[in-house]
C-alpha cells in the first residue's frame, strides 16, 4: 500500500491534481462559511448544475470547458443572487428551477451530441486525473485570486455576513460584497467541478463550514478550522481513492480504485460526524 502511494506521488498528473485539489478545497471552505451563515448554501448547488450545463455546451461545440463555464456560471451567480434578494420570487424555489433547467438542457445536449461517455461521467461525478497543464495554470491563478480577495475583504465579509443592515448603515457597499462572494463562489465551483463532479461540488462548500461550526465559537476559528478540515479531508479522500479497496473476485482479490469526488464527500461526512459527536460529548460533560 505504501509502495503504491509512493509510486503514485511520483506521477506528474497526481501532483497536478493534488495542487488543484488543495487550492480548490481551501477556496470552497473559506467561502462556504459565509454562504452557510447567510443561508445561501443552495446557491452553490444551483451553480454547480449550471456549470454542468455549460460544460455540456462546451463539449458539444468542442470548446475549452473551463473558459466557457466560468463566464456562464459567474452570470448565473449574479442572477441567483438577484433572485434570492428580491422578495417577489422565493429564493430556494427559483434556485431549484434554474438548476434543474440547466441540468436538463445539459443532459439533452449531451444525448444529441456525444452520448453519455466517460467524459460526461467525469463531469458529473468528478475525476482528479483529467487535468491538463493549462487547466492547472488557470486553476492556480484563479484560486490565488480567490484567496487573496478573501483575505483582503475578510473583515467586510464578516460584517456583511453577520449583519447586513448594520454594515449598510456604516457605509459598507453590501450589494457589492454580496456580488463579490457570489463571483468568487462561481469561480471556485467551476474549478472544483472537474475534481468533485457537478453533483458533488456543493458538498465541498457546505461540509467544512458545518463541521467546524460544531466546535468553533468565533468566526475566525470557524474560518481557519474549515480550511484545515477541507484540506485534510481532501488529502485523506484523494489518497484513499488512489489506493482503492480490495474486492473479492473469483478466487483472488483485485484492487478497485474509488471515485475521487465521492470519496472526498464521504470523508467529509465522517469528519462532520466526529465533530458532532465531540460536541455532544462535551455538552454531556458540562452538564
Amino acid at each position: 500500500m505504501i509502495n503504491t502511494l509512493i509510486e503514485m506521488w511520483q506521477q506528474p498528473f497526481i501532483i497536478r491534481a493534488v495542487v488543484v485539489g488543495v487550492l480548490v478545497s481551501l477556496c470552497a471552505a473559506l467561502l462556504g462559511v459565509s454562504l452557510v451563515l447567510k443561508r445561501y448554501a443552495m446557491i452553490g448547488d444551483g451553480l454547480s448544475h449550471v456549470g454542468f450545463g455549460s460544460l455540456a455546451v462546451a463539449m458539444a461545440f468542442n470548446l475549452a470547458p473551463l473558459e466557457v463555464s466560468i463566464p456562464v456560471v459567474v452570470l448565473a451567480a449574479f442572477l441567483l443572487l438577484r433572485i434570492s434578494e428580491s422578495s417577489k420570487i422565493k429564493g430556494d424555489a427559483a434556485i431549484a428551477l434554474i438548476s434543474a433547467s440547466a441540468l436538463a438542457l445539459g443532459v439533452m445536449l449531451i444525448s444529441i451530441t456525444t452520448g453519455l461517455n466517460t467524459d460526461v461521467c467525469n463531469f458529473m461525478f468528478g475525476s482528479l486525473l483529467t487535468l491538463s497543464k493549462d487547466d492547472l495554470a488557470l486553476s492556480v491563478v484563479l484560486s490565488a485570486v480567490v484567496l487573496t480577495v478573501f483575505v483582503l475583504a475578510y473583515n467586510k465579509i464578516f460584517a456583511v455576513t453577520f449583519d447586513e443592515s448594520f454594515a449598510k448603515a456604516t457605509g459598507v457597499k453590501t450589494s457589492m460584497y454580496n456580488m463579490l462572494i457570489a463571483f468568487l463562489t462561481a469561480i471556485t465551483i467551476v474549478l472544483g467541478m472537474r475534481m468533485m463532479g457537478a453533483m458533488l461540488i456543493s458538498a465541498l462548500i457546505i461540509f467544512p463550514a458545518l463541521t467546524s461550526m460544531r466546535l468553533c465559537k468565533t468566526f475566525r476559528t470557524v474560518t481557519l478550522c474549515s480550511a484545515l478540515v477541507s484540506v485534510g479531508c481532501f488529502f485523506i479522500g484523494a489518497n484513499a481513492s488512489f489506493i482503492g479497496i480490495q474486492v473479492r473476485q473469483g478466487h483472488g482479490f483485485i484492487t478497485r480504485s474509488l471515485p475521487t469526488g465521492a470519496t472526498i464527500v464521504v470523508v467529509n461526512l465522517i469528519a462532520f460526524l466526529i465533530f458532532w459527536l465531540i460536541n455532544a460529548i462535551k455538552g454531556r460533560v458540562r452538564k
Binding site: 451563515l37 453577520f162 449583519d163 461550526m213 465559537k217 468566526f219
Partner: peptide
C-alpha cells in the same frame, strides 16, 4: 440568522 452565529 444572527441568533446562531459563530462569532465572539
Amino acid at each position: 440568522a444572527q441568533k446562531d452565529f459563530p462569532a465572539s
